[in-house]
Simulated assay, not measured.
Amino acid sequence: MGTSLQPAHMLSPGANLGAYIQTVSGFDVLSAEEEKQLAEDLYYREDLNAARQLVLSHLRFVVHIAKSYSGYGLNQSDLIQEGNVGLMKAVKRFNPEKGVRLVSFAVHWIKAEIHEFILRNWRIVKIATTKAQRKLFFNLRGQKKKLAWLTNAEAKAVAADLNVDVSHVHEMEGRLAAHDAAFDAGVDDDDDSAWQAPAHYLEDRRFDPAAQLEHENWQENSLNSLAAAMGQLDERSQDILRARWLSEQKSTLHELADKYGVSAERIRQLEKNAMKKMRVAMEA
Protein backbone atom coordinates (compact mmCIF):
# COMPACT_ATOMS: atom_id res chain seq x y z
CA MET A 1 0.00 0.00 0.00
CA GLY A 2 2.91 2.25 -0.71
CA THR A 3 1.61 4.93 -3.06
CA SER A 4 4.49 7.39 -3.16
CA LEU A 5 4.25 11.15 -3.37
CA GLN A 6 4.65 12.59 -6.88
CA PRO A 7 5.43 16.10 -8.10
CA ALA A 8 2.23 18.06 -8.80
CA HIS A 9 2.98 18.43 -12.53
CA MET A 10 3.26 14.64 -12.89
CA LEU A 11 -0.33 14.24 -11.66
CA SER A 12 -1.78 16.68 -14.19
CA PRO A 13 -2.74 15.05 -17.51
CA GLY A 14 -2.56 18.41 -19.25
CA ALA A 15 1.15 18.94 -18.59
CA ASN A 16 2.49 15.81 -20.29
CA LEU A 17 -0.09 13.15 -21.05
CA GLY A 18 2.45 10.41 -21.73
CA ALA A 19 4.33 11.06 -18.51
CA TYR A 20 1.05 11.25 -16.59
CA ILE A 21 -0.17 7.87 -17.87
CA GLN A 22 3.19 6.31 -17.07
CA THR A 23 3.06 7.77 -13.56
CA VAL A 24 -0.47 6.63 -12.69
CA SER A 25 0.24 3.18 -14.13
CA GLY A 26 2.99 2.82 -11.54
CA PHE A 27 0.70 3.27 -8.56
CA ASP A 28 -0.02 0.10 -6.57
CA VAL A 29 -3.32 -1.68 -7.13
CA LEU A 30 -5.06 -2.10 -3.80
CA SER A 31 -6.19 -5.47 -2.55
CA ALA A 32 -9.74 -5.82 -1.27
CA GLU A 33 -8.49 -5.74 2.31
CA GLU A 34 -6.32 -2.64 1.78
CA GLU A 35 -9.12 -0.81 0.00
CA LYS A 36 -11.62 -1.62 2.76
CA GLN A 37 -9.23 -0.41 5.46
CA LEU A 38 -8.56 2.89 3.64
CA ALA A 39 -12.26 3.37 2.93
CA GLU A 40 -13.10 2.83 6.61
CA ASP A 41 -10.38 5.30 7.65
CA LEU A 42 -11.95 7.90 5.37
CA TYR A 43 -15.59 7.10 6.08
CA TYR A 44 -15.35 6.90 9.87
CA ARG A 45 -12.30 9.03 10.67
CA GLU A 46 -12.17 11.46 7.73
CA ASP A 47 -8.57 10.47 7.05
CA LEU A 48 -7.57 12.62 4.06
CA ASN A 49 -4.41 10.60 3.47
CA ALA A 50 -6.61 7.52 3.02
CA ALA A 51 -8.73 9.46 0.52
CA ARG A 52 -5.61 10.42 -1.39
CA GLN A 53 -4.41 6.84 -1.64
CA LEU A 54 -7.82 5.65 -2.79
CA VAL A 55 -7.84 8.28 -5.55
CA LEU A 56 -4.28 7.69 -6.70
CA SER A 57 -4.67 3.93 -6.90
CA HIS A 58 -7.66 4.31 -9.24
CA LEU A 59 -6.31 6.99 -11.61
CA ARG A 60 -5.29 4.32 -14.12
CA PHE A 61 -8.92 3.21 -14.23
CA VAL A 62 -10.00 6.75 -15.20
CA VAL A 63 -7.48 6.75 -18.05
CA HIS A 64 -8.94 3.47 -19.29
CA ILE A 65 -12.48 4.87 -19.28
CA ALA A 66 -11.47 8.18 -20.87
CA LYS A 67 -9.84 6.37 -23.80
CA SER A 68 -13.21 4.87 -24.72
CA TYR A 69 -14.46 8.41 -25.46
CA SER A 70 -11.67 9.31 -27.87
CA GLY A 71 -14.08 9.36 -30.84
CA TYR A 72 -15.60 12.70 -29.89
CA GLY A 73 -12.66 14.81 -31.03
CA LEU A 74 -11.99 16.25 -27.58
CA ASN A 75 -8.66 16.54 -25.83
CA GLN A 76 -7.78 13.30 -24.04
CA SER A 77 -6.23 15.22 -21.15
CA ASP A 78 -9.48 17.09 -20.59
CA LEU A 79 -11.49 13.88 -20.61
CA ILE A 80 -9.14 12.34 -18.03
CA GLN A 81 -9.29 15.45 -15.87
CA GLU A 82 -13.09 15.40 -15.86
CA GLY A 83 -13.04 11.67 -15.07
CA ASN A 84 -10.72 12.39 -12.15
CA VAL A 85 -13.29 14.82 -10.78
CA GLY A 86 -15.86 12.04 -10.92
CA LEU A 87 -13.45 9.67 -9.17
CA MET A 88 -12.92 12.14 -6.31
CA LYS A 89 -16.67 12.55 -5.91
CA ALA A 90 -17.04 8.77 -5.77
CA VAL A 91 -14.31 8.39 -3.16
CA LYS A 92 -15.99 11.05 -1.02
CA ARG A 93 -19.33 9.20 -1.14
CA PHE A 94 -18.04 5.62 -0.94
CA ASN A 95 -19.50 3.56 1.90
CA PRO A 96 -17.29 0.55 2.75
CA GLU A 97 -20.24 -1.22 4.38
CA LYS A 98 -22.06 -1.69 1.05
CA GLY A 99 -19.89 -4.67 0.19
CA VAL A 100 -18.79 -3.51 -3.28
CA ARG A 101 -15.38 -2.52 -4.61
CA LEU A 102 -14.68 1.15 -5.14
CA VAL A 103 -14.10 0.64 -8.86
CA SER A 104 -17.66 -0.66 -9.31
CA PHE A 105 -19.08 2.29 -7.41
CA ALA A 106 -16.86 4.93 -9.06
CA VAL A 107 -17.54 4.01 -12.69
CA HIS A 108 -20.89 5.79 -12.61
CA TRP A 109 -19.41 9.02 -11.24
CA ILE A 110 -16.47 8.98 -13.65
CA LYS A 111 -18.66 8.46 -16.71
CA ALA A 112 -21.18 11.04 -15.53
CA GLU A 113 -18.52 13.77 -15.38
CA ILE A 114 -17.10 12.80 -18.78
CA HIS A 115 -20.59 12.74 -20.31
CA GLU A 116 -21.34 16.23 -19.01
CA PHE A 117 -18.05 17.52 -20.39
CA ILE A 118 -18.69 16.03 -23.82
CA LEU A 119 -22.21 17.44 -24.00
CA ARG A 120 -20.95 20.90 -23.01
CA ASN A 121 -18.10 20.97 -25.49
CA TRP A 122 -18.68 18.62 -28.39
CA ARG A 123 -20.83 21.09 -30.28
CA ILE A 124 -21.59 24.78 -29.95
CA VAL A 125 -25.29 23.90 -30.10
CA LYS A 126 -26.21 21.41 -27.41
CA ILE A 127 -27.53 18.27 -29.04
CA ALA A 128 -28.82 16.44 -25.97
CA THR A 129 -30.55 18.17 -23.08
CA THR A 130 -32.94 15.66 -21.53
CA LYS A 131 -31.96 12.46 -19.74
CA ALA A 132 -33.49 10.35 -22.54
CA GLN A 133 -31.60 12.31 -25.21
CA ARG A 134 -28.31 11.86 -23.38
CA LYS A 135 -28.85 8.14 -23.09
CA LEU A 136 -29.67 7.97 -26.79
CA PHE A 137 -26.72 10.18 -27.72
CA PHE A 138 -24.05 8.03 -26.12
CA ASN A 139 -25.59 4.68 -27.06
CA LEU A 140 -26.29 5.67 -30.64
CA ARG A 141 -22.79 7.10 -30.95
CA GLY A 142 -21.43 3.66 -30.19
CA GLN A 143 -23.80 2.07 -32.72
CA LYS A 144 -22.75 4.50 -35.45
CA LYS A 145 -19.16 3.30 -35.26
CA LYS A 146 -20.21 0.15 -37.06
CA LEU A 147 -23.28 1.28 -39.00
CA ALA A 148 -23.92 3.68 -41.88
CA TRP A 149 -27.32 5.39 -41.90
CA LEU A 150 -29.70 3.23 -39.91
CA THR A 151 -32.34 1.31 -41.79
CA ASN A 152 -35.90 1.41 -40.45
CA ALA A 153 -35.43 -2.02 -38.91
CA GLU A 154 -32.16 -1.00 -37.24
CA ALA A 155 -33.69 2.25 -35.96
CA LYS A 156 -36.60 0.31 -34.46
CA ALA A 157 -34.21 -2.14 -32.83
CA VAL A 158 -32.19 0.71 -31.26
CA ALA A 159 -35.40 2.40 -30.10
CA ALA A 160 -36.66 -0.80 -28.50
CA ASP A 161 -33.30 -1.48 -26.86
CA LEU A 162 -33.08 2.04 -25.38
CA ASN A 163 -36.83 2.35 -24.69
CA VAL A 164 -37.25 5.55 -26.75
CA ASP A 165 -39.45 6.50 -29.68
CA VAL A 166 -38.05 5.61 -33.12
CA SER A 167 -38.50 9.23 -34.26
CA HIS A 168 -36.05 10.27 -31.54
CA VAL A 169 -33.51 7.80 -32.91
CA HIS A 170 -33.72 9.32 -36.39
CA GLU A 171 -33.53 12.85 -34.96
CA MET A 172 -30.43 12.08 -32.91
CA GLU A 173 -28.85 10.30 -35.88
CA GLY A 174 -29.26 13.47 -37.91
CA ARG A 175 -27.65 15.52 -35.16
CA LEU A 176 -24.71 13.15 -34.97
CA ALA A 177 -24.24 13.31 -38.74
CA ALA A 178 -24.21 17.11 -38.74
CA HIS A 179 -21.02 19.07 -38.26
CA ASP A 180 -20.13 22.61 -37.29
CA ALA A 181 -18.82 24.85 -40.05
CA ALA A 182 -17.01 28.15 -39.76
CA PHE A 183 -18.82 31.08 -41.39
CA ASP A 184 -15.64 32.35 -43.06
CA ALA A 185 -12.91 30.34 -44.73
CA GLY A 186 -9.95 29.46 -42.52
CA VAL A 187 -6.67 31.27 -42.98
CA ASP A 188 -5.01 28.00 -43.99
CA ASP A 189 -7.70 26.87 -46.42
CA ASP A 190 -6.57 26.52 -50.03
CA ASP A 191 -8.47 27.82 -53.05
CA ASP A 192 -10.10 24.44 -53.63
CA SER A 193 -11.81 24.39 -50.22
CA ALA A 194 -12.11 28.08 -49.24
CA TRP A 195 -15.03 28.67 -51.62
CA GLN A 196 -17.18 26.25 -49.64
CA ALA A 197 -17.37 28.61 -46.63
CA PRO A 198 -20.97 29.82 -45.99
CA ALA A 199 -19.85 33.46 -46.35
CA HIS A 200 -19.36 32.92 -50.09
CA TYR A 201 -22.99 31.93 -50.55
CA LEU A 202 -24.39 35.28 -49.43
CA GLU A 203 -25.72 37.41 -52.26
CA ASP A 204 -23.88 40.71 -52.85
CA ARG A 205 -26.47 43.17 -54.11
CA ARG A 206 -24.27 46.24 -54.06
CA PHE A 207 -23.71 46.11 -57.82
CA ASP A 208 -27.09 44.73 -58.82
CA PRO A 209 -28.43 47.14 -61.54
CA ALA A 210 -32.00 46.75 -60.27
CA ALA A 211 -30.96 47.54 -56.69
CA GLN A 212 -28.90 50.54 -57.82
CA LEU A 213 -31.80 51.91 -59.87
CA GLU A 214 -34.17 51.43 -56.96
CA HIS A 215 -31.79 53.32 -54.67
CA GLU A 216 -31.36 56.17 -57.15
CA ASN A 217 -35.13 56.48 -57.62
CA TRP A 218 -35.62 56.57 -53.86
CA GLN A 219 -33.05 59.33 -53.50
CA GLU A 220 -34.58 61.35 -56.32
CA ASN A 221 -38.09 61.00 -54.89
CA SER A 222 -36.88 61.98 -51.44
CA LEU A 223 -35.14 65.09 -52.75
CA ASN A 224 -38.20 66.10 -54.77
CA SER A 225 -40.45 65.63 -51.75
CA LEU A 226 -38.08 67.65 -49.60
CA ALA A 227 -37.91 70.49 -52.12
CA ALA A 228 -41.72 70.55 -52.49
CA ALA A 229 -42.22 70.62 -48.72
CA MET A 230 -39.63 73.40 -48.28
CA GLY A 231 -41.45 75.43 -50.94
CA GLN A 232 -44.56 75.57 -48.72
CA LEU A 233 -42.66 77.39 -45.93
CA ASP A 234 -42.09 81.11 -45.57
CA GLU A 235 -38.59 82.43 -46.34
CA ARG A 236 -37.59 82.81 -42.69
CA SER A 237 -38.60 79.25 -41.83
CA GLN A 238 -36.73 77.95 -44.89
CA ASP A 239 -33.62 79.89 -43.90
CA ILE A 240 -33.77 78.56 -40.31
CA LEU A 241 -34.05 74.94 -41.47
CA ARG A 242 -31.23 75.34 -44.00
CA ALA A 243 -28.99 76.95 -41.39
CA ARG A 244 -29.81 74.40 -38.72
CA TRP A 245 -29.92 71.19 -40.78
CA LEU A 246 -28.73 71.51 -44.38
CA SER A 247 -25.59 73.68 -44.14
CA GLU A 248 -22.12 72.30 -43.55
CA GLN A 249 -21.52 75.03 -40.96
CA LYS A 250 -24.68 74.74 -38.89
CA SER A 251 -25.88 77.83 -37.05
CA THR A 252 -26.80 77.92 -33.38
CA LEU A 253 -30.12 79.15 -32.02
CA HIS A 254 -28.39 82.23 -30.62
CA GLU A 255 -26.76 83.09 -33.95
CA LEU A 256 -30.12 82.97 -35.72
CA ALA A 257 -31.73 84.89 -32.86
CA ASP A 258 -29.21 87.72 -33.38
CA LYS A 259 -29.82 87.63 -37.14
CA TYR A 260 -33.60 88.03 -36.82
CA GLY A 261 -33.65 90.13 -33.65
CA VAL A 262 -35.68 87.64 -31.62
CA SER A 263 -34.98 85.32 -28.69
CA ALA A 264 -33.33 81.91 -29.05
CA GLU A 265 -36.54 80.37 -27.71
CA ARG A 266 -38.49 81.99 -30.55
CA ILE A 267 -36.08 80.50 -33.11
CA ARG A 268 -36.55 77.08 -31.50
CA GLN A 269 -40.34 77.44 -31.83
CA LEU A 270 -40.10 78.49 -35.48
CA GLU A 271 -37.81 75.55 -36.18
CA LYS A 272 -40.19 73.12 -34.48
CA ASN A 273 -43.22 74.44 -36.38
CA ALA A 274 -41.36 74.33 -39.69
CA MET A 275 -40.29 70.73 -39.11
CA LYS A 276 -43.88 69.77 -38.31
CA LYS A 277 -45.15 71.35 -41.53
CA MET A 278 -42.39 69.60 -43.51
CA ARG A 279 -43.31 66.22 -42.04
CA VAL A 280 -47.00 66.63 -42.89
CA ALA A 281 -46.21 67.76 -46.43
CA MET A 282 -43.82 64.85 -47.13
CA GLU A 283 -46.27 62.26 -45.76
CA ALA A 284 -49.16 63.55 -47.85
Rank of each mutant, 00 (worst) to 15 (best):
S4F: 00
L5I: 07
M10F: 01
L11W: 00
A15E: 12
N16F: 00
G18W: 00
I21M: 11
S25M: 02
S25R: 12
G26D: 04
V29W: 01
E35L: 03
Y44I: 13
N49W: 00
R52W: 00
H58T: 02
L59G: 00
V62A: 00
S70M: 09
Y72P: 03
N75L: 09
N84F: 00
G86R: 05
G86E: 05
L87N: 02
V91H: 06
P96E: 05
P96F: 01
K98T: 15
G99Q: 11
V107T: 14
H108L: 11
H108C: 10
I110F: 04
I114Y: 07
W122S: 13
I124Q: 10
T129K: 13
A132M: 11
A132C: 02
A132Y: 00
A132V: 09
K135T: 06
G142K: 14
V158S: 03
A159S: 06
L162V: 04
V166L: 03
V169N: 05
E171H: 07
E173K: 02
E173T: 05
G174F: 00
G174S: 05
L176Y: 01
A178G: 12
D180A: 08
A181L: 09
F183W: 08
F183Y: 10
D184N: 13
G186C: 06
D191A: 10
D191G: 10
D192C: 06
A194L: 13
A197W: 04
F207T: 15
A211D: 04
Q212Y: 00
Q212K: 15
E216A: 14
W218G: 13
Q219P: 01
N224A: 11
A229C: 07
L233V: 09
D234K: 12
S247Y: 04
E248V: 09
E248H: 11
E248K: 14
Q249F: 04
K250N: 10
S251C: 10
D258H: 11
Y260S: 10
S263L: 09
S263E: 15
A264C: 06
R266L: 08
E271K: 15
R279I: 14
V280Q: 15
A281H: 07
E283T: 13
